[in-house]
Design a protein around this nucleic acid. Structure first.
Length: 202
DNA sequence: CGGGTAGATTACCATGATTC
DNA sequence: GAATCATGGTAATCTACCCG
């Protein structure tokens, strides 16, 4: 592990610790790294989640992840940079998870590929006209899909209206399969979101 | 039943945009 | 110019279903 000369003494010290941690399995080195960075990481995390309990958890998680992957650490960058990125990414994922959890309680949308598209609205302004709305579900569906970012429109159209397989879509769009899967997943996420917050529809 | 597979979800990370 | 947060790509993993 060659240390870049332009790093500060502090950063160099970090590298030493990392080295003895990862190569020598030195418990103390781990402890010291944690000691040094625990507070800063905690504060970063806390700012993102605005909840001390979650911040505690996420801080520990971040360290766990970082240490688990210490051998993959690229010494081209300062350790702090790397650590913070792990911490923030972890937070982002956490926040995402929570967002999903809190929605889809008062609204549900279901898409399956048997040519059936159903949308259920279940919130306070339930009216006798609700059934009428349901009759227009496909139109609504197309309307909502029309509001998606173009990228996703394409995906959703191919998948749910043209009924192509993931692989076919991947070929069609010349994109990796994993990308197609993830993007479609996100498109669905967006749809849920839109149905929930109807303001987005206008 | 079990293993094969399409599809769905999740983890991980990089980069971009925005704000301070 | 760093801090903060969003968005996106990729791959691994999980799940449900089918067919033998």
């Amino acid at each position: 592990m060659e240390v870049n000369k332009q790093f500060s003494a502090k950063a160099k010290h970090d590298f030493k610790l990392i080295q003895s941690a990862v190569e020598g399995g030195d418990e103390k080195a781990y402890a010291e790294l944690m000691q040094i960075y625990k507070k800063p990481v905690y504060h970063v995390v806390l700012k993102m989640v605005r909840n001390p309990d979650d911040a505690e958890d996420l801080t520990i998680e971040a360290f766990a992840k970082a240490f688990r992957n210490l051998h993959k650490f690229n010494p081209e960058y300062a350790f702090s940079t790397w650590l913070f990125r792990i911490a923030t990414n972890n937070c982002i994922d956490f926040i995402r998870k929570n967002k999903i959890k809190t929605m889809s309680i008062d609204s549900a949308i279901k898409i399956d590929n048997g040519d059936e598209i159903t949308i259920d609205f279940k919130d306070n302004n339930l009216t006798p006209q609700e059934s009428a709305i349901k009759n227009q579900k496909i139109e609504i569906m197309q309307f909502i899909v029309g509001k998606l970012p173009e990228k996703y429109q394409r995906l959703v159209t191919l998948r749910y209206f043209d009924e192509l397989s993931y692989e076919e879509i991947a070929t069609e769009l010349n994109a990796p399969l994993g990308t197609v899967k993830a993007q479609l997943h996100r498109a669905r996420e967006l749809l849920y979101d839109m149905v929930k917050n109807k303001k987005h529809l206008i």
